[in-house]
Design a binder for these strands. Structure first.
Lengths: 416, 416
DNA sequence: CAATTTCGTATTCTTCGTAAACAAACTCGA
DNA sequence: TCGAGTTTGTTTACGAAGAATACGAAATTG
C-alpha cells in the first residue's frame, strides 16, 4: 500500500477539522487555510462527499466580489457514535452525531451498584443496541463506554470501587460480543467528560476537568491532548493529600460527597444529597459545610493548577451543582493560593451536565474521525479501505497492576 | 512549495529516529521497520548522507545469510547544539553533538545573583560564542538557554526570583544579537532537565522530573511529550501546598533548600549546604532533618503521581545528592501513599548531574532534528531549504501575566 | 452590458513511492 | 572449489498525488 495515499487522507482530515471549526466553508476557503491548491481540496472534498461526511448546502456565502463558492458543511448524520455511562444506579446511553448533538437517549435503571460485570454486559449491550436500532448501521462508528474508576490503556477496568469491579477486561469483552464493525472504547468517566468539553471547543485547550461526585476524579488536557499517564491512570486528583484547616487527608474525603456527611445519608444517591443541601442553603450548618468544601476544593485545584497550568478549570458531576453558591469564595481562595505570577485559571461549570460522561465517551470515538493519520503508524498494515474509518482509538496499551481498595459491597475480581 | 516534498522529509526524519534508537542499521533494516520499500529508504538516506547527518561505517553486521547490509549511523558531528544554564552563580555552557555527547564546556562564574539581565546578555553570548568557535559554523544549529523560573512560551522570562529577573524577553533579545542562522530557545530549567532525560531514552517515556535546588521545580513528560500548560508555566511542584506532620505549606519550604535551615547558611550555595549535610550524616540532627525531608518529598511526589501517573520519577538538582541516603525511607513512604491500585512510579537520580540543565537546553534544539514534519503546520511557508534545518522549536506562543513574588535582592523588571 | 474578480474543475507536468528486475556480496553445502 | 540460495542496494517502469496553468462559470461593479 502506497504512502502517497496518506496525503489524500491527511488533506481530507484537515478539511473535516476546518469544517468542524467553522460552520460552513467553500473549497477555496479551505485551500487558503491549508496552503494548498484549490484542485487538491477539490479531490479531498470529493472523497468526503462520496463518503457522506460532507454536504453542499445552498446557503449562500455573504455577498462578495467574484463567483460565490459553494458552501460546504459537515453532514451531522455522516457518522454516529454511541456513548454509554456506567453509573452506580443506571446505564445511560446517548446517540451522538458529528455535530456533537444528542440524537437519541436510552437509560436502563439498574437500581443498585455491585452487580457482577458479566451480568451487566448484556444490559449494556441492550442499551447500545437500542440506540443503534435508530440509525443506519453503516453510519454507526462504534461504542464508547465511560466507567467510574481506574481504566487501563486497553480499556480494562482495573478497579472501579463504586461498581465493585476489578480487573474486568470490559473493552475486550465488548469487542467480542458487539458487531464486528463497531469500534469499542472504554475509558474513565473524567476522561470522557473532558473529551466532551474538548470536542465542543474548536481551539485546542489546556484545561483541567474535575468531576465532583461520590469521589473526585479529574482529567487534564494539555494543548488539546489528553494526559493519560503511563498506565492510563492519570487524573486521580481525589487521592491527592491536602490539608484544610489543620485536617490532612485525601481531597476526596473533603471535597467529594464525604465532605457532606450529614447530607449524604446511607442509601441516598449523591444527587439526592445535593438536593437536600440546595434546599437548606440558608441554614448555618449547610453554609459552614459549603465553606469548608470550597476551601478544600480550592486547595486541590490550586495544587493541580501549579502543576499543570491550565487555562480553564471545568467542574462537573453532581456536586458541581453546588458551585454557583460558593463561586465567589472559591475563586477568591484560588486567587490567593495562586501566587508566583502564575495566571489563575478561570472556573466554569461543565457544558454538558448529567450526560457529560456518556456524551464524552461517544466524543472520544468522534475525535478519531478528525485525527490526522499518523504517518509513522505501523498499524496501517490492514489498510483501512473507506474514508469513513476513524484513525486509532484514543486509548490503548499496557498492563494492569494489582488493586487494593476499600469498597462497601461485594467485589467482582476477574483475576484468577 | 509542494506537499509531496514533505513525504521525503518525513521518511528522512523517521530514519534519523531509528538511527538514534539503535547504534547502527542497514537500509534494509529501516525499510522493514518503517514498512516501506528499500528504494524509498535509499533516497531518504541519500539525502541524509548528503546533508552530513548520516555516515556509512565499515562496521560489519553480525554474520548472517545473504549480502551484508552497509551499516549506517548518525554522524555525531552532523549537527551541534549549544546549551547554556543561567544559574545564580555561573553561566555554564556545553556544546552537544547529535549523540548527546558533550563536546566542549565553558563556564563564566558570575559570582553572584541579581544582575541586570541586559548586562548579562553579553556574557551569555560570550560563553556561547566561545563554544561556537570550536566548531563548524554551518553545523551549529543554535543556542538553548535554561533559566530557573517561569518562562513563557515565547521564551520570555516572566519571573526568575533567584536571578531577580522579571518580564525580560530573553529569547527575543538573543534572536536580535545572535547570528541570524542560530535557532534560539529559552526555557525553564526543569523543562531542560527533563528534555535531557527524554533525549537519552529511545522509548517515549512518561516521567516526572523533579529539580531539587533552592526551590523545587518539576517537569512532566507524558508519552514523550512535554506538558507545558497554557502559558508554559506547568511544573511548579514546589508551590503545591502539602501538610507534613501537621505543618502545612508549600512543598518548596520543606523539600527545598529551606527544608534544611541549619545547613543552608546565609551566603552559602545550596551545593555547599548539601556538602555539610553529607559530612554530618551520622548526627541525629541531620538524620532528623533528612527524615522530615523524605516525608515531605514523598507526599509531594505521591500527589503529583496520582495526578500524572508517571512511569518514573527522576530527581535532579543539588539536593538530589541526598537521595541515596533516604532512598529506602522515601520509597517506603511513596508506596504507602500510593494506594488505589495506582502503580508506584520508580525513583531514579537524574542521568546528567550538574550539567543537566545546560545539556537539556541543547537537547531541546536537538529534538527538533528528529521531529516529524507537521504536515498541518502553516509555518512551512518560508520553505526550509536544507534537510539540516530542525522542525519548529519546542516552545512558543502566548502572553505573560503579572508576577508577584518575594525575592531577596534587587528586581530587574523590564515591564514599563 | 462589459470588465473584473473569484470559484471550481480540467489538463499537463513534476515528484514521489512501489513493484519488479538486476547486480553485488555473502553463506552454505556438495 | 564452486554453484545454489539469500539478502542487499540500486535501477527502471509505472501509478498516484500535488502544483501550475488554463478555462468556463457565476457573481459584483461601473
Amino acid at each position: 500500500m502506497t504512502t502517497t495515499r496518506l496525503l489524500r487522507r491527511m488533506h481530507a482530515r484537515h478539511c473535516l477539522r476546518l469544517l468542524q471549526g467553522s460552520q460552513t466553508l467553500s473549497r477555496a476557503d479551505m485551500a487558503r487555510a491549508l496552503g494548498v491548491t484549490r484542485a487538491t481540496i477539490g479531490y479531498a472534498v470529493a472523497e468526503l462527499t462520496a463518503a457522506g461526511l460532507v454536504l453542499e448546502t445552498p446557503s449562500p456565502t455573504p455577498t462578495r466580489l467574484g463567483r460565490p463558492g459553494v458552501a460546504l458543511r459537515l453532514n451531522p448524520q455522516g457518522a454516529l457514535f454511541i456513548g454509554v455511562e456506567m453509573d452506580t444506579r443506571a446505564i445511560s446511553g446517548v446517540l451522538l452525531d458529528l455535530n456533537m448533538q444528542v440524537v437519541a437517549r436510552r437509560v436502563d435503571p439498574t437500581g443498585a451498584a455491585f452487580q457482577d460485570p458479566q451480568a451487566m454486559l448484556p444490559r449494556l449491550m441492550a442499551v447500545a443496541q437500542g440506540l443503534a436500532a435508530q440509525t443506519d448501521q453503516a453510519r454507526l462508528i462504534g461504542l464508547g463506554v465511560a466507567v467510574p474508576g481506574l481504566v487501563g490503556r486497553q480499556g480494562q477496568v482495573v478497579n472501579a470501587p463504586l461498581l465493585g469491579w476489578r480487573n474486568f477486561a470490559l473493552q475486550a469483552e465488548l469487542q467480542r460480543i458487539a458487531p464486528a464493525h463497531w469500534q469499542i472504547d472504554v475509558c474513565n468517566d473524567a476522561f470522557a467528560f473532558a473529551s466532551a468539553e474538548l470536542a465542543a471547543e474548536s481551539e485546542p485547550q489546556s484545561l483541567l476537568m474535575v468531576l465532583l461526585a461520590e469521589g473526585v476524579g479529574s482529567a487534564h488536557l494539555d494543548a488539546g491532548r489528553m494526559i493519560s499517564g503511563a498506565h492510563g491512570f492519570a487524573g486521580e486528583l481525589g487521592h491527592m493529600v491536602v490539608s484544610v484547616r489543620g485536617r490532612a487527608g485525601p481531597l476526596e474525603a473533603m471535597a467529594g460527597a464525604a465532605g457532606f456527611p450529614d447530607a449524604m445519608g446511607a442509601g441516598l444517591s449523591v444527587a439526592q444529597g445535593v438536593a437536600s443541601l440546595l434546599a437548606s442553603l440558608d441554614t448555618p450548618k449547610t453554609q459552614a459545610a459549603l465553606d469548608l468544601w470550597a476551601e478544600a476544593l480550592a486547595i486541590g485545584l490550586a495544587n493541580a493548577a501549579h502543576l499543570l497550568d491550565p487555562d480553564r478549570i471545568v467542574l462537573g458531576g453532581p456536586l458541581s451543582a453546588l458551585y454557583p453558591h460558593v463561586a465567589g469564595t472559591l475563586k477568591e481562595h484560588l486567587a490567593t493560593l495562586m501566587l508566583q505570577g502564575h495566571a489563575t485559571p478561570s472556573l466554569h461549570l461543565a457544558r454538558y451536565g448529567n450526560e457529560g460522561a456518556a456524551i464524552g465517551a461517544a466524543a472520544r470515538l468522534r475525535a478519531g474521525m478528525f485525527a490526522l493519520p499518523d504517518l509513522g503508524d505501523k498499524s496501517r498494515k490492514p489498510a483501512p479501505p473507506s474514508p469513513l474509518s476513524p484513525d486509532r482509538a484514543p486509548c490503548q496499551t499496557d498492563i494492569s497492576p494489582h488493586p487494593a481498595t476499600l469498597a462497601k459491597g461485594p467485589i467482582y475480581d476477574q483475576q484468577t
